[in-house]
């Protein structure tokens, strides 16, 4: 049984078709990177897969069950694209992470919620900050809190949307370590990235989106040596891909 099965997917946002003719199969234990330029539809793809935006046509199955009220969302951990883990009222990292223990028919987090939340924070290197307000944490640390919030679910499928965008280097390294450990333990990972960076060693397969459809699905595209420097954000798909519509103005639709 595949962890994720997307068939002939089309997603419209307003009058625009953001994704079309998308097929994607992710098997258990795979670590898949979804790459693409801004507006290529990669965030839209993971948001559709997690049930956050409606699908125009096509099918999405998680663990063999179609997306919908019966989808096994308790087996999925989602890390949204965020710059901050704060809201209008101060909250500690543990309080934020405990939200991850909820789900369908589970409105309270259960007995040892605090212990589980602290453990999840320890796993991303934030054990010491567990009871601090998230407002006091750096952007990268806040992103790690959101990752801990997904990990506390003990997900079989972890879906991350640009988890290292704009994140400080120590947090990027901590993130790569965490993800490596999870993949070794058998967690299936789908991660949207702008560039492979630290995760190049980890990702077995890359799906490159271009203009709303899959332009490449296979081995991760090699980064040019001089482009491997930190801070470089370009995506380098295979040459056969780059040859197509280079420079086509991408429509910025992602938040």
């Amino acid at each position: 049984m595949n962890v994720l099965e997307v068939r002939d997917l089309r997603v419209d946002l307003g009058a625009h078709t953001v994704l079309h003719d998308v097929d994607l199969t992710v098997r258990a234990g795979e670590a898949v990177a979804v790459l693409g330029a801004n507006g290529s539809g990669k965030s839209t793809l993971v948001r559709a897969v997690t049930g956050l935006i409606p699908v125009h046509s096509g099918t999405i199955e998680l663990f063999g069950t179609p997306l919908g009220p019966n989808a096994p969302m308790h087996r999925v951990g989602y890390v949204p694209q965020r710059v901050s883990a704060t809201s209008g009222v101060v909250a500690t990292a543990v309080e934020v992470v405990q939200s991850g223990l909820l789900g369908k028919g589970r409105l309270r987090p259960g007995r040892d919620a605090t212990r589980k939340a602290v453990e999840a924070l320890e796993s991303v290197g934030l054990g010491a900050a567990a009871h601090r307000p998230v407002t006091e944490l750096s952007g990268g640390q806040q992103q790690r809190v959101l990752i801990a919030r997904a990990l506390v679910r003990e997900p079989e499928l972890l879906v991350l949307d640009e988890p290292v965008a704009g994140v400080d280097l120590p947090s990027q390294e901590a993130f790569a370590r965490t993800l490596t450990r999870l993949v070794r333990a058998g967690t299936t990972v789908v991660v949207v990235l702008h560039e492979l960076g630290d995760l190049a060693a980890l990702v077995q397969r890359a799906v490159v989106l271009r203009g709303g459809h899959v332009a490449h699905d296979g081995a991760p595209p090699p980064a040019h040596r001089h482009h491997a420097a930190p801070g470089h954000v370009h995506v380098h798909p295979h040459d056969d891909v780059t040859a197509q519509d280079v420079g086509a103005p991408a429509l910025e639709l992602e938040p």
Partner: peptide, 10 residues
């Protein structure tokens, strides 16, 4: 975070 909450099935 309403979006994350929706992804959990809440």
């Amino acid at each position: 975070d309403a979006e994350f909450a929706r992804s959990t099935g809440l």
